[in-house]
Write a protein that binds this DNA or RNA. Structure first.
Length: 324
DNA sequence: CATCAGGGCCCTG
DNA sequence: CAGGGCCCTGAT
C-alpha cells in the first residue's frame, strides 16, 4: 500500500503574466492525454511538481482577465519553504507556462490569416504550457508510443503507483513523478509487470542517462535547437516524433516544424485542405504561410479543434481520429 | 475464439 | 532508406 504524503504548508502569491493571457487555454490542453499528476476545472488548475528534490503541490486560480491577467498561485509543501526557493519555483513556472513570453508579433502578423483569424480572437492569450520537466515529459512520450490513450493512462498510472508518490493538498490527491535513480535501478522484469511491454528498456536507459547527469535540462535551455534535437535523438527510445515534441513542449520553440506524425497529419489535412494530403504538402504550407512562427501556428490550429470538441461542438470526422 | 492496428522506435538488409 | 517486429489491449 502506498502512503499519501500530506502537504500542509502553503504560501500564496500573485502572478501577472504578460497580456494577452487566457487562463483556461493556457493551464489546460485538451489535446493532451489526461495525466494523473494534474487536475483542471474552469478557472482552476492543480498539479504536482518534483522540483530540486522537493515534492510540491501547485494551484493556480484565475483572478484576472485576458487583458489584465492575474493568477493566484498557491504552493503546497511538507515543510516551510524559504523565499529564495519560492522565487525559483516561480521562475520555473514562468518558463513552463510561458507566462512571460511575449507573442504580440504573432498576433499582429496573422490577424488576417485565413486559419488563424478566428482562433486568435477566440483563444486570444493561449499559451503553450508544459507542466513537466524534461525527464518527466520523456517518460510520458515513451508511454504514448504505439498505444491508445487509454493504454497510455494505464501505463502511467501503474508506473506512478509503483515508483511515484501520492500527494495530498487542497483536498486533491495527485501523483508526483519518481526520481530517475529509482527506475535506473529497477529491472526490466519489474517494469514488464506494469504492462509497459517493450518500453521497459527505454525507461531504464533514459532514466540512467538522467541519473548519471548526462543530460542537463537547464543547460539545454541555453543551447541551440539543433543541439537539443541531437541530444534527444541520442536517447534510446526517442525518435523524430518525440524529439520534435520536446522542442515545442519542453523547450517552447515556436519555430521548428520538420515532422508531422500520421494522426496529426490527418487532422491538419482535413482542417486546411479538407482532404488527405501528404506530410510534405502540409509542411510546405506552414513554411510559406507562417515562416518563423510555423510551430506556434500549428499548435494554435491543432489545439483549437480539441477545445471546440471539449466545448461541445460536434466534429464527427475528428472523433474517428481520436482513439481512446 | 482469432486477428489486428495503435498518438513510434530500433534494427536489419 | 524501407519495412518487419515489438508488448499489450480493446475492437472487430
Amino acid at each position: 500500500m502506498m502512503k499519501t504524503l500530506l502537504l500542509k504548508e502553503k504560501k500564496s502569491l500573485v502572478l501577472k503574466p504578460i497580456k494577452p493571457f487566457d487562463f483556461d487555454s493556457s493551464v489546460h490542453n485538451p489535446s493532451h492525454y489526461p495525466s494523473p499528476t494534474e487536475f483542471y476545472e474552469k478557472g482552476k488548475f492543480w498539479q504536482t511538481m518534483r522540483f530540486k528534490n522537493k515534492l510540491l503541490g501547485i494551484k493556480f486560480e484565475n483572478k484576472g482577465t485576458v487583458n489584465n491577467p492575474k493568477i493566484k498561485l498557491t504552493i503546497y509543501s511538507k515543510t516551510k519553504l524559504d523565499n529564495k526557493f519560492i522565487k525559483e519555483i516561480v521562475n520555473e513556472l514562468n518558463y513552463r507556462f510561458e507566462l512571460n513570453k511575449d507573442v504580440s508579433e504573432f498576433y499582429n502578423k496573422f490577424k488576417n490569416d485565413k486559419f488563424l483569424e478566428p482562433i486568435l480572437k477566440k483563444r486570444r492569450g493561449m499559451r503553450n504550457k508544459c507542466g513537466h520537466s524534461l525527464y518527466e515529459s520523456l517518460m510520458i512520450y515513451i508511454t504514448l508510443q504505439n498505444a491508445t490513450v487509454r493504454r497510455t493512462v494505464q501505463m502511467m498510472t501503474n508506473l506512478l503507483k509503483k515508483y511515484g508518490t501520492l500527494l495530498e493538498f487542497d483536498g486533491k490527491k495527485l501523483y508526483v513523478f519518481w526520481k530517475p535513480e529509482k527506475i535506473a535501478k529497477t529491472s526490466e522484469k519489474q517494469l514488464r509487470e506494469l504492462k509497459v511491454g517493450y518500453r521497459d528498456k527505454m525507461f531504464i536507459r533514459i532514466s540512467k542517462a538522467f541519473a548519471d547527469k548526462e543530460i542537463d535540462e537547464l543547460k539545454l535551455r541555453n543551447t541551440t535547437t539543433e543541439e537539443i534535437f541531437n541530444q534527444m535523438m541520442k536517447l534510446y527510445g526517442v525518435g523524430k516524433q518525440s524529439a520534435s515534441y520536446m522542442l515545442l513542449e519542453v523547450f517552447h520553440d515556436h519555430e521548428t516544424l520538420n515532422h508531422i506524425s500520421p494522426w496529426e497529419g490527418k487532422i491538419m489535412s482535413k482542417i486546411m485542405f479538407n482532404k488527405l494530403v501528404s506530410e510534405d504538402k502540409i509542411l510546405k504550407e506552414f513554411e510559406k504561410r507562417y515562416g518563423r512562427w510555423k510551430m506556434l501556428a500549428f499548435t494554435y490550429i491543432f489545439t483549437d479543434i480539441f477545445w471546440r470538441k471539449k466545448q461541445g461542438e460536434k466534429i464527427p470526422w475528428l472523433e474517428k481520429e481520436i482513439r481512446l
